[in-house]
């Protein structure tokens, strides 16, 4: 793939390109299935087991299929004291969405995050790559409703 070739130029060896390649495979396959991991291994000519070891170390790679939109909600200390846990409960009540799970209609998946560096505007979340802060019981759903 052209994209991976470009990335390879930035590193002195093939292995250096592994993290970015895993992101690409995640984007292409939706999640890092065995097939996606094998594809990453093949693209960089790395042993597949090694690739899997790396992929499963990091929290932002997905190891099961995901909904159309990924909610990454922070519940670390600053967000917690500002009410993030209540938001987790609400997501369950409203969408039946459990941490680590996906809504039945495949619209949302929820991942509980450690600190996402938005403590001054807690609670905060990422939806896909969009950042949303100063969340509360009302605006949470106003925001989420924009994601179909």
């Amino acid at each position: 793939m052209e994209e991976i070739k470009e990335i390879l130029k930035r590193y002195p060896d093939r292995r250096g390109a592994l993290l970015p390649t895993l992101y690409i495979m995640q984007r292409e396959y939706g999640w890092l299935s065995q097939e996606a991991l094998q594809a990453a291994a093949d693209a960089l000519n790395l042993p597949p087991a090694t690739v899997k070891g790396v992929a499963t170390f990091y929290a932002m790679y997905r190891h099961k299929p995901m909904g159309r939109h990924l909610i990454q909600l922070c519940t670390n200390v600053a967000c917690m004291i500002m009410g993030a846990e209540r938001l987790v409960d609400l997501l369950k009540e409203r969408y039946g969405l459990e941490p680590g799970g996906t809504t039945e209609d495949g619209r949302f998946s929820l991942v509980i995050m450690e600190c996402i560096g938005a403590c001054d505007r807690a609670p905060a979340m990422l939806v896909d790559t969009d950042f949303h802060a100063d969340l509360n019981e009302q605006n949470l759903f106003e925001i989420l409703e924009q994601y179909k």
Binding site: R15, Y23, V54, M60, E114
Partner: peptide
Amino acid sequence: QGAGAYICGEETALIDSLEG
């Protein structure tokens, strides 16, 4: 781009992560 691992802030872990 890191991929969600606090320990990768530690400089030697960061280097390992940089190396893939």
